[in-house]
């Protein structure tokens, strides 16, 4: 059952990722990207990483996708984008991507990885266990990231200001 769900989520995520690249309208791009984000959240749940799944849905499908949609709306990009790269460049890009995929898959298939745990019984992805690690071992990076957020907020306001 879990395996079928895994393959279903894989196919749906790959399809929506492809449609992000293929479709022309920016709104469709954003909506397909949202679908891909939900599929990846499903993968996190399959891995029993509940905290990451919740954070992923809140941050990506919630905040970031709304930000993208607002940008599409503000810039009025709803019409079909008239600019496209020449067909030769597109063909070259697809061939280069295919070669990269062949190389990576060929290398990664041969690796023989020894895995220590069975992912169906692991408990490390739960909020309780992850919170202990986060607030014991990674307290300083956690606090520093708040400064990063403050500076990002100031930077975004400064860049978006009209003058």
């Amino acid at each position: 059952m879990k395996v079928y769900l895994f393959y279903f989520l894989c196919i749906l995520a790959l399809y929506s990722a492809l449609m992000v690249v293929i479709s022309r309208k920016p709104v469709h791009n954003v909506l397909y990207l949202t679908l891909a984000m939900f599929c990846i959240a499903g993968h996190y749940i399959l891995l029993n990483a509940q905290f990451l799944a919740v954070v992923h849905i809140i941050v990506y499908a919630g905040a970031i996708m709304v930000l993208f949609l607002f940008t599409v709306m503000l810039l009025n990009l709803n019409n079909e984008s008239e600019f496209r790269k020449p067909a030769l460049v597109q063909l070259g890009a697809v061939v280069a991507g295919g070669l990269l995929m062949l190389t990576l898959v060929g290398v990664l298939k041969q690796t023989d990885m020894v895995m220590t745990t069975d992912p169906t019984t692991t408990q490390i992805g739960l909020v309780k266990n992850l919170g202990k690690v986060l607030y014991n071992d990674f307290l300083l990076p956690f606090e520093v990231s708040s400064i990063l957020f403050l500076s990002a907020m100031v930077g975004a306001v400064l860049l978006g200001k009209k003058d």
Partner: peptide, 13 residues
């Protein structure tokens, strides 16, 4: 990842 790479290379938007 490769779909993302192709998207970066193909798109102009």
């Amino acid at each position: 990842f490769v779909i993302g790479v192709v998207g970066v290379l193909v798109k102009r938007n």
